[in-house]
Amino acid sequence: MNIVENFDLYAPRLINKKELLSAGHRACQGCGEVLAVRLMCKALGENTVIASATGCMEIISSMYPTTAWEVPWIHVAFENAAAVAAGVEAGLKGLRKKGKIDDRYIKVVGMAGDGGTMDIGLQALSGAMERGHDMLFVCFDNEAYMNTGIQRSSGTPMGASTTTAPAGKISSGQKTWKKNMAEIMVAHSVPYVATACPSYPLDFIRKVEKAKATKGPSYIHCFSVCPTGWRCGSHLAIAMGRLAVESGVFPLYEVENGKYKVSSEMPKKLKPVKDYFKGQGRFRHLGEAEIQVIQHKVESEYQKILDKVKYLKAWD
């Protein structure tokens, strides 16, 4: 049975039908990130306030005098989404406690891209998580500064060619391994950390719902395919996300109170990373030897997660 044809039958059980990020925004065709944001909003529901960093999702959604946001939304600057979200949370808490606003629970969510989370926004995020604000932070990671023109970030994967770490006669693009942001969040002892990808919409929605139900800080690292920056077909965003997961390049897992759990979407046997690389212009320059180095590293990183699942116990 085709689930799309029977959308009205199945959807209400799986997904909130109300659109909180409306159509008509200015995202590129095939953008994996805006799809993820839309799903996140559906999972969060109306009682949400979002603080967004500067970046693609901000400029495509809030061109004055229009807005795509059906939930309260604030943008201040690039590096401070987590601090703004922390302020929103504190402000609402203070007002609610004093009876100045109605007594409903509102989830505060900070969101930023990989640059706004892992590079320039890391300090503000670390502070907000450490202080224990009741908020979710979601990193929509498209693995480079796409809004400014595909410059490398600490989220750019090894070997990818970007406009500031290009492949050249003596360079194979990004020289460093991708910063492990989820682990940095786990190290902050926040009660819920997860990785997700909109290519697995129900898994992503379930994780957002879990984060929403978590009292205190939570973090989701959402892998967001950018056909424009990755130089792949705009019809391939979902497929690329799936290949990243299936190859172990971006494993899906959760860490609840320190206990690791690999998501059921992860295959028993990983696909070779070259299957994932071959559809993308940013990896086109890589030779067999370089791909092998990355292949080994991907496997060992995934093994680390499996080991943590096996050996680490929950905190409580």
């Binding site: 306030v49 201040v76 600057a77 979200a85 302020g87 402000g91 609402l92 606003i101 503000a124």
Partner: peptide, 11 residues
């Protein structure tokens, strides 16, 4: 940043 966010809530 935080006082901007909080002021936005009406605090």
């Amino acid at each position: 940043s935080a006082v901007i966010g909080a002021s936005g809530t009406g605090a």
